[in-house]
Amino acid sequence: MRKLILGAVLASASLFALTAQAESLAPADIKVGKQYVELPTHVPVAQPGKIEVVELFWYGCPHCYQFEPSINAWADKLPEDVSFRRVPALFGGLWNVHGQLFITLESMNVEPKVHAAIFEAIHKDGKKLATPEEMAEFLAAQGVDKEAFLKAYGSFNVKAQMEKAKKLAIAYQISGVPVMIVNGKYRFDLGSAGGPQNTLQVADYLIDQERTAQ
């Protein structure tokens, strides 16, 4: 398991290796096998009838944290026919702990500002948020009821969603984060696309491609 986690961290770190000199992409420059890959087996989407975009992430990933402002601004402007959702990557250890935190808060319908506060706490304040009790104390300051959180954290529903997230990561064949998936068909990341803004350009290109195909 330690090797798996280390491998995921290294894969995540490598995503930014090509971003220093990244140039903006023109639609004609975006090619399968270059900026993105098509999954050998297409994965069913959560909301049939909409074009789905998934971001797989980890609260502890510095590149996910750096990507947040860009992807949030992009997601806020998506048209009605596009569905965006986040799925935590579960590579064991703290990845799973933080993934369970995210899924719990999602089940409680907390406001996006809580999600942002967790990223800030980990990356700016050095908090680990490694136990349910530590999470509950921190979340109480964000307006989340401690007892309700702890009850939800250990619930059957959250555990079931954890299993679904694990299966999705396997189906998407991911090895690091942040990674994006469009319509259960196409996978790409910041390294393959050439940086945060190019990643979102690839997402827009594939969304348009899927819309045309419908």
Rank of each mutant, 00 (worst) to 15 (best):
Q197T: 13
S70D: 14
L18K: 15
I118K: 06
Q142H: 07
G99Q: 03
R211P: 07
E134T: 09
M162N: 10
P27G: 08
P196D: 04
K151V: 11
V158Q: 07
I5H: 00
L94K: 04
V177D: 02
Q66I: 01
L10I: 12
K128C: 00
R85T: 10
E134I: 03
E147G: 14
E106S: 12
K159L: 11
A141C: 00
I71Y: 11
P112R: 11
Q161L: 12
D125G: 07
L190H: 06
A140K: 15
R86T: 04
A213D: 05
P48S: 08
N198Y: 03
Q161D: 15
I122N: 05
V110M: 03
L150V: 05
S107Q: 15
G184K: 01
V45H: 06
F188C: 02
A28C: 04
P88R: 05
L10G: 09
V87T: 13
L101E: 11
Q197V: 09
A160F: 09
D145F: 10
L105Q: 06
A22C: 08
P79L: 06
A26T: 13
E137L: 11
A28Q: 15
R211C: 08
A117V: 07
G99K: 00
L168W: 07
G195A: 07
V45C: 06
L200Q: 03
E147T: 12
G92S: 08
L6A: 13
K167M: 09
K113Q: 14
S24W: 02
F188V: 03
E111C: 00
G33A: 09
A8K: 10
Q47C: 01
A213R: 15
P132I: 11
V110F: 04
V110E: 08
E120K: 14
F84V: 04
N157A: 15
